[in-house]
Design a protein around this nucleic acid. Structure first.
Length: 266
DNA sequence: CTGGGGAAGGGGCCC
DNA sequence: GGGGCCCCTTCCCCA
């Protein structure tokens, strides 16, 4: 997948971050209509286990602009209140969620091990074993290795739910949310990795479409969809076939075109 | 079959 | 360092 360009391909199970850091995670999500239309939350014993995340976060704060009655979530989802369906289970259900990894930071241990490879010299006590740069303090060397030098250490944050590895703990934390899905829609029970994804999803319930096309009267709930739509107004579209020069509004359409045989490249 | 819309996932960037 | 937003991308569905 092109989106995984930060993902280290070769899995090294010996490199694990401190997952203890990931467990104390609470996401505060603002509610839109929940206060007016309270519904229950579906407990997701599997993907939202205490191993993955603690509390389930629900949408429960700022109210949106008033909606017309015909956009009321109740009008479209009367039967869903209090009877929501659980979200589709991801393939993570087959993964080991036992949390059997040591709570001690393997990453720290590994870093210490790497640093121990460095040796001190006269005056400048700490020298990087990889680039020979020297530092007077241990922390200086540690920072150097973490931020600038040691490529391996920069790509050593691996997910315990899958085989992906990331260059930073922040990126790993973000990724792990795709497994734990802490943001739950109170209307339908569907879970999302990030609050703004839930916000976008809630627009599918409310009908809110804040992104309007300046060229026609269409409006969209998602800016990216508006952007794709704007391409349809353009004579020369963004994605062009290298063989026949035909342009397309979306890359997926270009791919379809190429796969259909116009650009049979052998 | 093709083009377009809707929904969603995920990494990067900025504050 | 974390959260929110941006942007790109993909998948599915429908006309």
């Amino acid at each position: 997948m092109p989106r995984s360009f930060l993902v280290k391909k070769h899995f090294n199970s010996s490199k694990k971050p401190n997952y203890g850091e990931l467990d104390n995670h609470t996401v505060i999500i603002s509610p839109i209509l929940y206060e007016r239309y309270p519904v229950s939350i579906i407990p997701q014993a599997d993907i939202l286990s205490s191993v993955a995340y603690g509390p389930i976060t629900v949408w429960n704060s700022l109210l949106p602009p008033p909606l017309p009655h015909d956009l009321s979530p109740l009008s479209g989802y009367p039967s869903s209140v209090g009877r929501v369906s659980p979200p589709p289970q991801s393939d993570t259900s087959s993964k080991d969620h036992s949390g059997s990894e040591s709570p001690i930071s393997d990453e720290e241990e590994r870093l210490q091990s790497k640093l121990s490879d460095s040796h001190s010299i006269e005056g400048e006590k700490f020298q990087c074993s990889l680039c020979s740069k020297t530092y007077s303090t241990f922390s200086g060397l540690a920072k150097h290795k973490q931020l600038h030098c040691d490529i391996q250490s920069r790509k050593s944050f691996s997910c315990k739910y899958c085989e992906k590895e990331y260059v930073s703990l922040g990126a790993l934390k973000m990724h792990i949310r795709t497994h734990t899905l802490p943001c739950v829609c109170k209307i339908c029970g569907k879970a999302f990795s990030r609050p703004w994804l839930l916000q976008g999803h809630i627009r599918t319930h409310t009908g809110e479409k804040p992104f309007s096309c300046p060229h026609c009267n269409r409006a969209f709930a998602d800016r990216s969809n508006l952007r794709a739509h704007l391409q349809t107004h353009s004579d020369v579209k963004k994605y062009q076939c290298k063989t026949c020069s035909k342009t397309f509004s979306r890359m997926s359409l270009l791919h379809k075109h190429e796969e259909s045989g116009c650009c049979v490249a052998h």
